[in-house]
């Protein structure tokens, strides 16, 4: 991820002042981020790892170094149920959302003017930053058994369909969470595909669908995979959709963390779950980025 984010940003200015000695001026700009993110990002996350080895005695946390929390948590059936559930749903959401977003991003990249595309991205950015929680509540009302969709369907004599508190409900929530971002990332990557190459494929008699899968997808691979990775990260960590739309049956890892944390002094156990989640996400993200930048054979 590091290399990727760095390469997205423009190269530093070539003003001949690179690698100058570190003075007061340079430090003034460099230090604020270092201090804040160290004290309140690096340290808390490291502390979380340490906390997973603490002990709980008489309902009080005692600093220590014991693997007992890890052993206990990993021997629980409900932990693994939650793990497979979370991983499975996030993987499913990643595939479904990537596939469903693709035609939309394709249309935005190739069938619309530059201006229309800019406005589309403008409107996609808004919901990405707009209260996810309220949107999920609205979805709850929309897909409930007596909700809007079933109300509409009853006019044509269908339903009611049970959608709330099912895996389908969770998936709707993940889509609400990830769809705008995935469409934006896919659109950016496809809009940058060299039109001449597509033109050339058509001239050589390559059909439309074949052009999409043999020319456009490989060329836009990095952006498509980055979109999928973000989709996986967001779905994997989300607790709102599986709880309020999926009915928490079975709970996901995030719900497990909340229940364990809010029920008292069981923070070390929550820390075990949290560290497991971070390691999983790191492995998935690195595997995906490695695939994205692998040279074709």
């Amino acid at each position: 991820m590091t290399n990727d984010t760095a390469s997205v940003l423009p190269k530093p200015a070539a003003t001949g002042v690179e690698r100058e000695p570190l003075g007061l001026y340079a430090l003034t700009w460099r230090v604020p981020l270092l201090i804040w993110q160290f004290l309140f990002f690096v340290v808390p996350l490291s502390f979380l790892v340490y906390l997973s080895f603490w002990l709980v005695k008489n309902y009080r946390m005692v600093p220590g170094f014991d693997v007992v929390n890890w052993v206990k948590m990993y021997s629980k059936g409900y932990f693994w149920d939650a793990y497979y559930m979370t991983f499975g749903m996030a993987a499913l959401a990643t595939v479904v959302i990537t596939v469903l977003a693709f035609p939309c991003s394709y249309a935005l990249s190739f069938k619309m003017s530059e201006t229309a595309r800019r406005w589309a991205v403008f409107f996609l950015i808004i919901p990405f930053f707009t209260s996810y929680l309220v949107r999920i509540y609205a979805w709850q009302v929309i897909i409930a058994e007596n909700g809007v969709i079933n109300g509409l369907l009853s006019y044509i004599g269908l339903g009611p369909f049970i959608m709330l508190n099912t895996k389908f409900g969770t998936l709707i929530g993940y889509m609400a969470l990830c769809m705008p971002l995935v469409v934006i990332l896919q659109t950016f990557s496809m809009a940058n595909v060299d039109r001449n190459l597509i033109e050339a494929a058509h001239n050589l008699g390559c059909g439309r669908l074949r052009t999409v899968f043999t020319v456009i997808v490989p060329l836009a691979k990095v952006g498509l995979i980055i979109g999928a990775v973000f989709c996986f990260i967001l779905s994997f960590g989300d607790f709102v959709s599986p709880y309020y739309l999926g009915g928490s049956k079975p709970p996901t890892l995030s719900i497990l963390i909340i229940d364990t944390t809010k029920s008292g002094q069981q923070w070390p156990k929550s820390a075990v779950v949290a560290v497991t989640m971070i390691v999983t996400l790191l492995v998935v993200a690195f595997a995906a980025v490695a695939t994205a930048y692998r040279k074709p054979k």
Binding site: L45, F47, L48, L51, I233, F236, G237, S254, I257, W267
Partner: peptide, 13 residues
């Protein structure tokens, strides 16, 4: 990129 629940737990702790 860190899930909100994990950020929340780490911050709280």
């Amino acid at each position: 990129t860190i899930p909100l629940v994990i950020m929340g737990l780490a911050m709280l702790a």
